[in-house]
Computed example of a mutant assay.
Amino acid sequence: MSKLIASAAIRGAHTLVKQTEELLEKTTTEKGKDFTFEFPDTAFYLPMIYAMTAFPVKTLGDMKVALGMAKELLHDEPEEHLWKPYLGEALDSGMATLFAEEILLALKYINGLEPAKDPETGYVYNGFITDTIQRSLGIQLVDGTMPGFAAVIGAAPDDDTAVKIIRELQEKNILTFLSGNVNGNSATKQLLRKGIELGWDTRIVPLGPDTEHTLYALDWAIRASLIFGGKKPGDYKEHLKYQKDRVFAFAVVLGELDDIIWTTGA
């Protein structure tokens, strides 16, 4: 991993943790630390945090504890003139980012901001992927029936290119999740403008308009190791190994890469 990428991942993690902390403090002030929350139709609390740490996040107070775990994974950027290994720090930052993004999206649910709705088109994004969908489609992911899934982030140079990319993924029976934007434009909007049908039936699933919404796809993936792999919460090495061996996924980033994209990918 290059120093440039590592620095971007570390910066992005700090940005997201700070953003999440601010919204958590605001929401806790309004609703109290004992306010309970769970994502729709799931038995796994905040799945990424639960799988990695075995900590069940049930309340706003629990979110503060989990965000503290994320803070412990933060590091300073590599120094400009002193070389030292920084791969571990960058990977730690990536995990801190996933914890922060998961808490951030949970807070947005609490505040009525999820699932996101596009103000221009009125399109309502999928948001969190439920356990019901997980069990109906997830088995296809781990038994090889479905070759894998793609996370398409951002927007193509033009609408026709967006359609071409998605059609190629469809032809290969690859489940496609859409997230992120480039200056307000996104693959989701591009496909809508071209009249492409979106949703689970077509296996083109828009998760949300921001890069952070990619976390929903990662939550879907991590639950595969909990549900189908029988991996225990907190056994993070086994979860990560299962993801490597059995969950075939890749990202397609359209547009420039910023700190948030780098840290989400780390």
Rank of each mutant, 00 (worst) to 15 (best):
K108M: 08
E168A: 14
T145K: 11
D92S: 15
D210Q: 14
A8G: 14
N126I: 06
P85W: 11
G127I: 10
A224F: 01
P157I: 04
K172D: 06
E38G: 14
P119T: 00
T121H: 06
L169K: 02
G127H: 11
M48V: 14
K31M: 02
P85T: 09
L74W: 10
H14R: 13
Q134A: 12
N126K: 04
A9G: 05
G88L: 15
A221D: 01
G88Y: 05
T161K: 14
I153A: 09
T15F: 05
Y50W: 10
I204H: 02
K244N: 12
T161S: 06
T161C: 02
K117G: 05
Q140T: 06
R246C: 08
L137W: 10
L4M: 13
S136E: 13
I49M: 01
W200I: 08
E212V: 08
G127A: 12
E101L: 15
T97P: 15
N111Q: 13
N173K: 13
H14M: 14
A70Q: 01
F37S: 11
H213M: 05
S93A: 15
I261N: 03
Q243P: 00
T121A: 08
A187I: 03
I165D: 00
V252Q: 05
I174P: 01
P147C: 04
L137M: 07
G88E: 10
H75I: 09
K172C: 06
K3C: 03
G208L: 08
E197V: 15
E22C: 14
A151C: 15
T202C: 01
D259G: 09
K64W: 06
L137N: 07
L207A: 04
L60V: 04
M52A: 07
L98D: 09
G199L: 01
A96D: 10
T97Q: 11
T97N: 12
L240Q: 03
A217E: 00
D235T: 03
A70H: 08
D131C: 04
Y242T: 03
T130F: 05
G180H: 05
N183D: 14
G229V: 03
E21S: 14
G88W: 12
K84F: 12
S225K: 01
T264L: 15
L82G: 11
T121F: 02
A251R: 05
M95I: 14
K58R: 09
W200H: 15
K231C: 04
P115N: 11
E102Y: 07
I196C: 01
R135N: 10
T53I: 00
D259L: 13
S2F: 06
E102V: 12
D143A: 03
L254D: 05
F99L: 09
D235Y: 05
D159W: 02
F228N: 00
L107T: 02
V65F: 11
Y125N: 09
G184Y: 01
A90L: 11
V17C: 10
F248Y: 02
E171D: 12
K232L: 04
L87F: 13
N181Y: 00
L215S: 11
E256L: 07
G255R: 07
G180L: 06
D245W: 03
E89R: 02
D76V: 10
G255A: 06
T27C: 12
Q140K: 13
I110H: 12
K244I: 14
I166M: 10
L105Y: 03
H75Q: 11
F250E: 00
Y236M: 05
T264D: 02
L169F: 07
F39Q: 04
T36D: 07
M69V: 12
K232W: 00
T211H: 00
Q19H: 15
T211D: 06
V247H: 05
D210V: 15
